[in-house]
Write a protein that binds this DNA or RNA. Structure first.
Lengths: 225, 225
DNA sequence: GCGGGCCGTCAGGGAGGCGTCAAGATTCCA
DNA sequence: TGGAATCTTGACGCCTCCCTGACGGCCCGC
């Protein structure tokens, strides 16, 4: 089932879209501002984002850039501004479509179908740079300098994905253990030490002085792009 | 270089678009009606089609259907009609975007960038080389060195196609089992072992040391060109 | 200065995944 | 109806990866 994240500060539009999308068997989650949109997308991994440009807390184009930093999820922009410059800015920042308000729900639904048809839902992870290595989360490939390749084990990929999808953010030991292992492994913090060491050995230029996989003692780990 | 086919019966629009696109280093070909559009697309294999719905000889939506019958090329529709029904029809017939006239050239160019960004231009692979063998996916034929032929079973073709269409990318066991067998066979990973062995025996130079069909333990398989 | 957490490192053992082979079971076509 | 091609199933040995425990370094408070 296609997962749609709707970002808008107007409760009416939110309610209308949620109703219409749910009736068409989409899975819907909503966010009222840019901050919630970014965290929601990082945690929920939607197949499509519908984004109003006029958000209370941040510029819509910055939200697009924030998403595009780590995700290739399709983005449909809603906006009251019909100016050519606004459209060009949003599209060039990484939006896939631009619909001006007021819009017909039928048209929006058709555009949603057009976009999800092209992207079979699920190919939303681009490549991320980690120092001199480039990490392709989609193809599960790590390229090193000079055409070399680095091999990662499933557990290493699990850790790497969570960290890289939340650049700059502190990820608690609790969350890493829960998502990579299980909620029963919350006390096994030594697993993290072993596998973080392994990731650093494979991806950091100087594993003993990590620059991208940072330890926050007592709390967790952080990925610095 | 991205190849764009522009379909419109108005000489002015044709000239304007050709000028602007050529200036942005697109390769442009034009067609004045639906018949020329279909034959032109079949012979020239454009990476993008810009299609005016108001053509003299046939309905624009039929042109879309005609293209979609055999090609997945992105289509941007131009139309003077702003009605919601027209948009829905065109998009559901297979168009990727819908721009109403009069339109700004800047906006159209931004939409072109947005669409071609997603599809990296030219990604059908009729024949693929696997070591000393060449695989014709359309004709379902494998040629070996020296004019020999290799026979593959339907299941082998199923596996081979998914792997070869995603060169370099890791394909999960889950996806292979789902698409070649069914979602009920997710636990039968032994099938994969048997048929991967079979593919290697038929296509690899040294089946015991595979160079093109790589196992990623615990995750899936990968085709290396 | 000293001790206790917390973290990084290393290497061995065990379990599960993988490749291989061959023998049924099933389907397909003549 | 018979035979051939294809798919399924099971057994066995190998190899990878995960877990585990021990040790040392660093930082902090006492």
């Amino acid at each position: 089932m296609t997962r749609v994240l709707v970002v808008d500060d107007s409760p009416q539009i939110l309610a209308t879209l949620r109703l219409n999308l749910r009736a068409r068997r989409y899975q819907v989650q909503v966010a009222p501002d840019g901050k919630d949109a970014l965290t929601g997308a990082a945690e929920w991994h939607p197949d499509l984002v519908i984004l109003d440009l006029g958000l209370p807390d941040m510029d819509g184009v910055d939200v697009i850039r924030g998403l595009r930093g780590w995700s290739a999820v399709p983005i449909i922009v809603l906006s009251g501004r019909a100016g050519s410059g606004d459209k060009v800015d949003a599209l060039d920042a990484g939006a896939d479509d631009y619909v001006t308000k007021p819009f017909g729900v039928d048209e929006l639904l058709a555009r949603i179908r057009a976009i999800t048809r092209r992207v079979p839902a699920g190919e939303d992870l681009p490549t991320v740079d980690v120092g001199r290595h480039s990490v392709d989360l989609n193809g599960k490939i790590v390229h090193g300098p000079g055409g070399t390749r680095v091999h990662l084990t499933p557990t290493e990929w699990g850790l790497l994905e969570i960290l890289v999808r939340n650049p700059g953010k502190l990820i608690s030991q609790r969350r890493l253990l829960t998502e990579v292992w299980s909620p029963n492994h919350l006390s096994e913090t030594n697993y993290l030490r072993v596998y973080l060491a392994s990731l650093r050995r494979k991806l950091e230029d100087d594993p003993s002085r990590p620059r991208h996989f940072i330890t926050e003692p007592g709390m967790g780990y952080r990925f610095e792009p």
